[in-house]
Amino acid sequence: MGPFPILVRSVVHHVGRKSNPFLSQLFGRGSYTRRVSPVSGSSYQWLNQSYRSLILQSASESVKMERLSGSDSGIIEVNLDRPEAKNAIGKDLLKGLQHTFESINRDSSINVVMICSSVPEVFCAGADLKERRTMNPSEVQFFVNSLRSTFSYLEALHVPTIAVIEGAALGGGLEMALSCDLRICGEDAVFGLPETGLAIIPGAGGTQRLPRLVGKSVAKELIFTSRKIGGKDAMLMGLVNYCVPAGEAHLKALEIARDINQKGPLAIRMAKRAIDRGIEIELPSGLELEEECYEQLLNTKDRLEGLAAFAEKRKPIYNGQ
C-alpha cells in the first residue's frame, strides 16, 4: 500500500522549515520531500514514502486497536481513549488514527472495522480547541488539512467501516463518523457541526459528506445554525443506519459486523469499490465499473466455495482467495 495521504499544498508550504515546531511534533525530526505521485480515480494525492515512515514512528496511546478472535476473527475494533479531553482530536490522537488506519489497510486478514469510544457518553468531541489556540494560522491550516486527508483515507479503506456512536459526536467527531460506511448510534447520541459558531466552517469533510448523506437543504440548515440533533432525528434524516436504546450501539454494530464478516471478503471489497466509485460517475460508466469488479471475482476460490456450499446446503468457508 502506498504512503499515507495528506494534502500536498499544506506540506509543500512547510517544506524545508525543519525548525517548525508543529512539524516536529506531528512528524518527528527529519527531512522532508516534495515528491508526490497522484492516485488514479482519487481526489487527493499521496506523499512520498519518507512521510509514511515518519508517521509510523509515533503511534498514540489515545487510539487502541483490538483484534477479535474465534468466530469473530476478521473484525477489528478501533477505540478512541482520551477521557481527559472527551476524545478531542489533537496532534497525538491524529497520529494514532493515521498509524491505525495504515495498519488496517496493509492487513489482508481484516474484514470489518468498528470505530468506537472507550470514554463513556462521548464518541468524539471534535477538535482539541485548547491545543488549537497554541497554533499560528499556518499550523492550523496544516493540521486541518492533515485531518481532512486522514478522514479521506478512512473513507477509502478497502474494508467496511462502522462508527459506533454513544453520546456526543461533534465537529471533527461527526466528520470522522461521516467518513465511515455505516453509522450506529444510541438514542442518547448528539450530533452537530458547531464550526460556524466559532466563525469557521467544517474543514475535515463536513461540508461535502453531510449533504451527500442527508441532502443539501438539511445539511445547510445544520451547518448554518450549528444545531445539534439527537439519535432519533439523525435516524429520520438518514444520518445513521440504526438508532438503538442507549448503551446498545456496540451490540448492534457487532451484530452487523459479524454478518459482514461471514460473507466473501473479496466480494465485500469489490462491492465497496463499485459503490463508492460508481456513485461519482454516470450510470453507463458505473455499470462498466460494476462489470470490472464482478470479473475480478470470477476466478476466485471463494466464488467456487460459495457455489459448492450452496449445493451441499452448508455454511461456506471463505479464505479471501
Rank of each mutant, 00 (worst) to 15 (best):
M1A: 10
I6L: 12
L7K: 04
V8P: 15
V11L: 11
V11N: 13
V12Q: 05
H14T: 09
H14V: 11
P21L: 03
F22I: 10
F22D: 07
Q25Y: 05
L26D: 04
G30H: 07
Y32T: 11
R34S: 13
R35G: 15
R35F: 12
R35I: 15
V39I: 08
V39D: 13
S40G: 12
S40N: 10
G41M: 09
W46L: 13
L54A: 15
L54P: 14
I55A: 06
I55L: 02
L56M: 08
S60C: 02
E61D: 08
E61Y: 02
S62A: 15
M65Y: 06
E66I: 13
L68H: 04
S73D: 08
I75Q: 08
I76H: 00
N79L: 14
L80Q: 00
R82A: 01
E84T: 09
E84G: 07
N87R: 00
G90A: 04
L93R: 00
L93M: 05
L93W: 00
K95L: 03
L97T: 04
H99D: 09
N105E: 01
N111I: 10
M114I: 12
S118G: 15
S118R: 12
V119T: 06
P120A: 03
P120E: 02
N136C: 10
E139A: 09
F142C: 02
F142T: 04
F143I: 12
V144T: 03
V144I: 02
N145P: 09
N145H: 10
S146H: 13
F151G: 02
F151N: 01
S152E: 11
E155S: 04
P160T: 04
L170C: 06
G171P: 15
G171Y: 09
G173N: 00
E175D: 10
L178P: 03
S179I: 05
L182G: 14
C185R: 09
C185W: 01
E187G: 11
D188R: 10
A189M: 06
F191Y: 05
G192V: 03
G192A: 02
L193K: 08
T196W: 07
T196R: 05
A199H: 12
I201E: 13
V218Y: 03
K220D: 11
R227C: 07
G231C: 14
L236A: 01
G238N: 13
G238Y: 04
L239P: 02
V240M: 03
E248W: 12
H250G: 07
L254T: 08
E255W: 12
E255I: 14
I256G: 04
A257T: 02
N261M: 14
N261I: 13
G264W: 14
G264A: 13
A267R: 07
M270D: 14
A271K: 13
K272R: 06
A274G: 08
I275Y: 11
I279M: 15
E282T: 09
L283N: 06
L287E: 07
C293G: 01
N299G: 12
N299C: 15
N299V: 11
T300A: 01
L304M: 13
E305M: 01
L307I: 07
A309F: 04
F310W: 08
E312K: 14
R314L: 12
R314K: 09
I317W: 06
Q321F: 15
